[in-house]
Simulated scan of single mutants.
Amino acid sequence: MQEHELLPAITAHVLSTARANNGKAPSERHLAEHFSVSRGQVREALAILESMQVIERRAKSGIYLAEGHTGIAAMAFFARAGLPLENRQIYEAVEVRKIHEIKAAELAAERATEENFARLADILERSEERLARGMGLDSLDQEFHLEIVRATQNSVFLGICTAFYEVGATRLQLYFRDPDRNRKSHEEHRQIHDALVARDPALSAALMVSHLRGAMSYWTELLEPDADRSA
């Protein structure tokens, strides 16, 4: 097994085993034997999971799934690794992302540089080209929204929002399968862009609220946060 494959594989095995065993995860020895790797490799993988608060070590007891909510860094890692996320986790991540993006629009109107505006205009131009070819805007939608966050000139803010997008990336592709939704989203992006260029924080934030309201309605219906299904 390649090094880059080991962490996702160990994570999947730890999660499935622990969930079926009252939260208790396999031992280092078991994992090393199961994956035919050294204890040192297993220890490194577990250290990463511990740093992301996925697992915790209990003295004289073993390794357990960490209590409490999974952090956004861990959720983003699960999404990148193709590991299942609960619908509630995705819904809550999208909800928090909405709060962040509204503030991002307000700050971007005040702080964006000409380079930010140029990148946003380029994204809109490429979006029009994709629409003309009947293609979805999922990747460009993410690019547009993250460029607005980048325009706040706050790298921590950008890192947080990037993680939120990684959590919902698969579902975003489903969202943009609808041609009408693509066209509507593109037009709203244009309006947000114009408000940002006009340096109008209040209008930028208001347009972002309106833009995300429709998306949240879709996510609410799709994910049903009270359901137990996995994404």
Results as ranks from 00 to 15, higher is better:
residue 190 R to L: 13
residue 54 V to Y: 00
residue 184 K to A: 13
residue 15 L to Q: 01
residue 173 Q to H: 09
residue 181 R to S: 03
residue 2 Q to D: 08
residue 55 I to F: 00
residue 206 A to W: 08
residue 102 I to C: 09
residue 63 I to T: 09
residue 55 I to N: 00
residue 127 S to N: 11
residue 116 N to T: 09
residue 170 T to N: 11
residue 194 D to T: 12
residue 120 L to D: 09
residue 59 A to L: 13
residue 105 A to H: 01
residue 5 E to S: 07
residue 10 I to H: 00
residue 139 S to E: 15
residue 143 E to G: 02
residue 42 V to H: 04
residue 114 E to V: 04
residue 10 I to W: 00
residue 78 F to P: 00
residue 202 A to R: 12
residue 153 Q to W: 08
residue 104 A to H: 01
residue 31 L to S: 03
residue 34 H to A: 10
residue 80 R to Q: 15
residue 126 R to M: 13
residue 158 L to M: 10
residue 100 H to Q: 13
residue 41 Q to P: 00
residue 124 L to Y: 06
residue 175 Y to P: 04
residue 125 E to L: 13
residue 41 Q to C: 04
residue 63 I to W: 04
residue 213 R to T: 15
residue 114 E to R: 05
residue 108 A to K: 00
residue 132 A to Y: 07
residue 110 E to G: 00
residue 2 Q to A: 12
residue 137 L to W: 00
residue 197 V to K: 08
residue 25 A to N: 01
residue 47 A to W: 09
residue 56 E to G: 02
residue 33 E to W: 10
residue 100 H to W: 14
residue 128 E to I: 04
residue 60 K to F: 14
residue 94 V to I: 15
residue 21 N to W: 03
residue 165 Y to W: 14
residue 115 E to K: 04
residue 151 A to M: 08
residue 200 D to T: 06
residue 214 G to I: 09
residue 76 A to C: 05
residue 221 E to W: 15
residue 112 A to L: 14
residue 152 T to G: 02
residue 140 L to F: 01
residue 163 A to L: 15
residue 26 P to L: 08
residue 67 E to V: 07
residue 168 G to C: 10
residue 41 Q to D: 11
residue 165 Y to A: 07
residue 187 E to P: 01
residue 7 L to S: 03
residue 227 A to F: 06
residue 65 L to P: 03
residue 48 I to S: 09
residue 182 N to L: 04
residue 106 E to D: 10
residue 141 D to C: 11
residue 27 S to Y: 06
residue 231 A to C: 11
residue 141 D to H: 08
residue 181 R to Y: 06
residue 63 I to G: 01
residue 14 V to N: 00
residue 50 E to R: 07
residue 120 L to N: 04
residue 33 E to N: 13
residue 53 Q to I: 05
residue 148 I to G: 03
residue 204 S to W: 10
residue 205 A to G: 08
residue 108 A to E: 03
residue 96 V to K: 02
residue 177 R to T: 13
residue 214 G to M: 08
residue 132 A to N: 10
residue 210 S to A: 13
residue 231 A to F: 15
residue 32 A to I: 04
residue 205 A to N: 06
residue 210 S to P: 05
residue 98 K to C: 11
residue 6 L to Q: 01
residue 77 F to N: 02
residue 175 Y to G: 08
residue 82 G to W: 06
